[in-house]
């Protein structure tokens, strides 16, 4: 699979509410097959809500979500996973009292058990030798970085075409952050489309093809990663550059 310009996900005219709180305001995203698309934005602007709306655990009041040419906004979450959307959740959210292996099995919940499962497991173990070492350990006892590897491995076990990652670098040491972003690129090169929420805009824009910027529930900017890296307001707000620095 490569980036051929055809769309894998179209998220159109979405309005999502939590009671009176208007969390997503007429939001549109498109994600092409084979892309890494990043979603940037400050705290509480609706990034996780976007991910949950794609997964179907939050139901939008209006709008359509089209995956692989078919509307999915009325489908239950399990069916969306079956069709090829898998999450890497914010703060990892492994099942802490299940072993690493059992967590990977849960990732493959919609898949048949058999030779295919073993292949997928081998692939995950190859990407993350550390996960293989720890396979019989309770996942709640892993370090944060190890947990993130299991979380990504768990998503891969669903044989996804699209992985929705919610802040995969959150709370990780710089070394692990590098590793996680490398792995994301590897997975993408192997053919999986990535939609990735990040607060670490620097890293995110270094691997993403395109990005959207969300502000209090509204998309305020979008473009290729290169364009956004050059955008002065992005540099100021998300890339940690201060005007003083620029002047000096």
């Amino acid at each position: 699979m490569s980036r051929d310009g055809s769309l894998l996900l179209e998220f159109t005219g979405i309005n999502t509410y939590y009671g009176d709180l208007h969390a997503l305001k007429d939001v549109n995203y498109t994600i092409g097959r084979g892309e890494i698309v990043s979603l940037l934005g400050g705290n509480a602007c609706g990034k996780s809500t976007t991910m949950k709306t794609i997964m179907g655990v939050v139901i939008p009041a209006t709008g359509t979500v089209i995956f692989d040419g078919k509307p999915i906004e009325k489908l239950p979450t399990s069916e969306r996973v079956r069709r090829g959307i898998a999450p890497v959740l914010e703060a990892r959210r492994l099942f802490p009292r299940m072993t690493v292996y059992e967590n990977l099995e849960m990732g493959a919940y919609t898949q048949p058990k058999g030779p295919q499962f073993n292949e997928d497991l081998e692939r995950v173990y190859e990407l993350f030798p550390r996960v293989k070492e720890r396979r019989n350990q309770l996942s709640g006892t892993l370090s944060g970085g190890e947990q993130q590897m299991v979380a990504i491995g768990r998503a891969l076990m669903a044989r996804p075409r699209l992985i929705c990652m919610d802040e995969p670098s959150m709370g990780l040491s710089p070394l692990y952050v590098e590793q996680v972003f490398d792995i994301i690129q590897t997975i993408n090169k192997q053919g999986t489309t990535i939609f990735m929420v990040e607060q670490n805009a620097n890293m995110a824009l270094s691997i993403a093809h395109r990005a959207y910027v969300l502000q209090t529930g509204r998309v305020v900017l979008s473009g290729t990663a290169a364009e956004l890296r050059e955008n002065p307001s992005i540099r100021e707000a998300y890339l940690g550059e201060l005007k003083v620095d620029a002047a000096a």
Partner: peptide, 20 residues
């Protein structure tokens, strides 16, 4: 049975694994 345990530990995450 594993889905039961997963749901007990984190129902929303279990749901996003495809658990009904």
């Amino acid at each position: 049975g594993k889905a039961m345990r997963a749901t007990a530990q984190d129902p929303e995450a279990a749901r996003m694994m495809g658990v009904e």
